[in-house]
Design a protein around this nucleic acid. Structure first.
Lengths: 177, 177
DNA sequence: ACGCTATACATCGGCCACGATGTATAATCC
DNA sequence: GGATTATACATCGTGGCCGATGTATAGCGT
């Protein structure tokens, strides 16, 4: 997820680590703060994999900056990760949001629609959080207000996202199944 | 998060690993499947910490079962973790939902309300996913439909949860700030 | 007869994330 | 004048999570 965010932001413009960090903090930081000690090793991994290169520039106000720029391979890799996301990136809202943030970099509307359809299929599967044996328990019959809350909130989110997905798929010219 | 789920389910009744796993899968599995190779080491950690004990029973249909039962210390630890959640458990919806699922085990409504108030404070903070410099970018002006979607969905979720939080706080007899 | 699925546990290696800590400089606040 | 904050990088150790793999037994379909 972190690597996807790095590739996504650098796809738009070369950045140095510090600015990159602030972008990532804005995108996911309120939910899951990104530690510097996670970001810098991640940058190193991507560099080692040949997906980005560093150029050292004298620092504007402090230490010298390492300006990070995606290689052509890095640009291909971002598009690949966007087009073929892992199932976790479809199901986990945190990861899904990161993917959505950069989905515009897939130039083919059909490929974009295909990704949205995977999310749609996931949301259309019936899922409950609690079961009585095999029978799913609805929000009305949950035995405490907190579990009711989970079901209520999840349902509201799901409804909003389904509406948005269907609208967006339609405007992408997707003909449905 | 996993440990909290284990403690939470065992607080209600002793279970063996396999059933515990199915409960956890129902609670969080559609978003983030729980691997057996994560569950069993987690159980071991909790056992080593003195929070639960195992009793081996002959297996009903297969291998012998290890029935897991919380110790008094384990029960105290669950209540402590519920009453004093880490900030991540407040901000990350996945973790927050697990916490909510077991909040009923805090017997004091005041303590329950205090936890909900922390989530309320978090949701009331203004947060945007994207910035133009320091200025947050709203859903209307986001430059692509996918980023618009993120903002739209997040807003819908937030609105639903805020309504539920205020209702529930009121019914817990919370007088507000 | 054979394979598949469910029950029921367990280990191992690798990767990744995080907190703590370190090293500088420059600006701002009190 | 001293402390704090922001900029800008980096390492290290701990520990969690995961995929792959292993070991059994029992039932069910074909």
């Amino acid at each position: 997820m972190l690597e996807l965010a790095i590739l996504g932001f650098l796809y738009e413009a070369p950045l140095h680590g510090y600015v990159l960090r602030r972008h990532i903090a804005a995108l996911t930081g309120h939910v899951k703060p990104v530690a510097e000690s996670t970001l810098y090793p991640a940058i190193k991994r991507l560099e080692k994999a040949g997906l980005l290169v560093r150029a050292t520039e004298p620092g504007a106000v402090a230490a010298p900056r390492h300006v990070l720029r995606l290689t052509e391979e890095g640009r291909r890799e971002l598009r690949r990760r966007l087009a073929e996301p892992a199932q976790r990136e479809i199901t986990d809202e945190n990861q899904w949001f990161v993917l959505l943030a950069f989905l515009r970099h897939l130039e083919d509307p059909g490929a974009q629609a295909a990704v949205l359809r995977r999310r749609l299929a996931f949301l259309e599967e019936p899922t409950s959080f609690f079961y009585d044996g095999d029978r799913p328990i609805g929000a009305e019959e949950a035995d405490d207000p907190f579990r009711q809350g989970i079901l209520t909130i999840a349902r509201a989110t799901s409804r909003a996202e389904l509406a948005w997905l269907r609208d967006t798929l339609a405007s992408l010219g997707d003909v449905g199944r």
